[in-house]
């Protein structure tokens, strides 16, 4: 029974990403490599952050501000990292194009670029889910479960799986938005990504209040859905524009 519950938590947190992985990523080896390296980058960022914060942990106070600082610095660091990733990706794209020219294959299509961004984002999301949710799931396979005082409506594992799902969605699609924004030089796309990440991060602070998760998690899901909607709208716009441009060229 607990085994079933454990598997259920895993699938709850990772089900959508698993679907994405199987349908989009796994057919193209290069995307798998992108995914793995982006996961590694996220892991390294987490290690660096925890190295910095190790001195102050565990926080004994019940005040909320140390946590707020922790979240703010982490988000700032990761958004900085996204810029670095974008630089790297830019180089990679040039190389891939040069390589495609050499083997007389078509250059990267727009959808290819988006898929690379998606793989990168999914890597971040997966790493998040793996380290913040999955790695804590080991006890859930055992004979008992665990409740947190602040949010005693559901087992801790269930709550963390639900929160992870929201964050996986946000990470995955904000990478697509960000890369597109950088490529187009679109300021609003560029700015909305750190903004969304920041809001999502600060919303988890609500969980510190006793019973706050009842409010915090729906709000978090609103952020996740708006990320999804924004990304969908943007991709749709890009694709239709691209289509129009292509048909113009053909005429």
């Amino acid at each position: 029974m607990t085994l079933a519950a454990g598997i259920g938590y895993v699938l709850l947190a990772l089900g959508p990403s698993l679907t994405l992985f199987v349908t989009v990523i796994s057919t193209k080896p290069f995307l798998i490599l992108t995914l793995l390296s982006s996961t590694l980058v996220w892991l390294i960022s987490l290690i660096v952050l925890s190295g910095v914060w190790r001195v102050f942990l565990p926080l004994k106070t019940t005040a909320w501000w140390p946590y707020a600082i922790l979240i703010l610095t982490s988000i700032a660091f990761q958004e900085g990292l996204r810029l670095v990733l974008w630089r790297g990706y830019k180089k990679l794209e040039d190389m891939l194009d040069a390589f495609a020219d050499r083997v007389a294959k078509p250059r990267l299509y727009l959808t290819d670029k988006m898929q690379i961004a998606l793989a990168g984002g999914l890597g971040h999301g997966l790493a998040h889910a793996v380290f913040f949710c999955l790695s804590l799931l080991t006890p859930s396979f055992g004979p008992a479960t665990f409740y947190v005082d602040k949010c005693s409506y559901a087992p801790f594992f269930l709550i963390s799986a639900i929160i992870s799902l929201a964050f996986v969605t946000i990470h995955t699609f904000s990478m697509v938005i960000a890369f597109n924004g950088y490529a187009e030089g679109n300021k609003s796309d560029q700015m909305i990504v750190p903004f969304l990440h920041l809001i999502a991060g600060t919303l988890t602070l609500v969980n510190l209040v006793s019973g706050g998760c009842i409010v915090g998690i729906p709000l978090l899901y609103m952020v996740a859905f708006s990320t999804l909607a924004y990304c969908g709208k943007m991709v749709w716009r890009r694709l239709t524009e691209n289509q129009i441009r292509l048909t113009h060229q053909n005429q």
């Binding site: 892991l43 987490l46 290690i47 952050l49 925890s50 190295g51 914060w53 190790r54 942990l57 565990p58 926080l59 946590y67 922790l70 979240i71 982490s74 988000i75 990761q78 998040h128 380290f131 913040f132 949710c133 790695s135 804590l136 947190v148 602040k150 949010c151 801790f156 709550i159 963390s160 929160i163 992870s164 964050f167 990440h197 999502a200 991060g201 988890t204 602070l205 969980n207 510190l208 998760c213």
Partner: peptide, 24 residues
Amino acid sequence: MFYFLTRVLMEPFVVGTSTNLMMF
């Protein structure tokens, strides 16, 4: 390297934040 880094540095951090239901 990653084993020991994770064990020494990351685990207290991750466990500390996520048992408070804080993620980013």
